[in-house]
Amino acid sequence: MPKKTIREVIHDTIQDEMRRDPTVILMGEDVAGGAGCSGEDDAFGGAFGFYKGLVGEFGRERIIDTPISEAAYIGAAAGAALTGLRPIADLQFFDFLGVCFDQIYNQMAKFRYMFGGKSDTPLVLLSLVGAGLRCGAQHSQSLHPQVTAVPGLKVVMPENAYDTKGLLLTAIRDDDPVLFLLHKLQFENACEVPDEEYLIPFGQASFPREGTDVTIVAFSAMVQKAVAVADRLQQEGISVEVIDPRTTSPLDEEAILESVEMTGRVVIVDEAWERCSVAADIASIVARKAFGALQAPVMTVTAPHTPAPFSPVLEDLYIPSEDDIERAVREVVAYRR
């Protein structure tokens, strides 16, 4: 089976879908690049090169470079989705959500409900979250809780290339607005990805590790760290189950609750801030719905309540580390009433 990076999977999946469905378009800043310039035409392929080559095949009518006007082009993507296209809108950094949030939470999220179920808004907003690139406070945030909180939006956070393919196919064919959020430290990660088409349904967790003593629920770049901790603790005889919900909305509550019913101990790991977050949300779900099974307090491991610092030494402290996760796991495992 061929090995592919997340970046390659994004490219190939969009290419396949654009070949299959003429209503799929891609728009955003420099998704091709080179417009109005005298050098090469396909000069950028998106800020991180995901889309390189697509403009050559599909032309500028379907691979659309926009001015730096996020509110307008994200809103336009919503309008186009409402009227028969299936746009994929690229937002270079999810931090720029601030510039176009109204189009997302007041417009696209609410059409179906406000219009009494009479509309579809098949739109994918593809963007990058996360710290670690030393880009400072306005280019490093994990803002998925902000959109997970909004009814009407679906939020997908794949952490490997295999899941990226299956989830992106589902996202493009879905009739609701989907925020497809990749972590910027991960898109060069490769794994085996089948050439055949396969769809991964939303709201279905995966289990990168199965275990019986403690449950870790982890998202995005935190999944790999959780797996590393699980493997390390396995050698000491601590059996850790790692759950990757893969989508924060819908959320596979059942998988989480079933696991916690078995282990009685849970650590939730997410790079976003904790206040009003996905981690806090899951902690509350577990506390309400698996109260009887809990043998230790629910623990969370998240970024601290600070903006992302620029300095590498501070940023490394800011991002939840394997050590932070291991410490939390040991604490819940050692806990006795």
Binding site: E29, D30, G33, A35, G36, C37, D65, P67, I68
Partner: peptide, 13 residues
């Protein structure tokens, strides 16, 4: 003349 890889003549209508 440029915003990233896009020319001003294209982006400013």
């Amino acid at each position: 003349g440029y915003g990233e890889a896009t020319g001003f003549s294209y982006a400013v209508g």
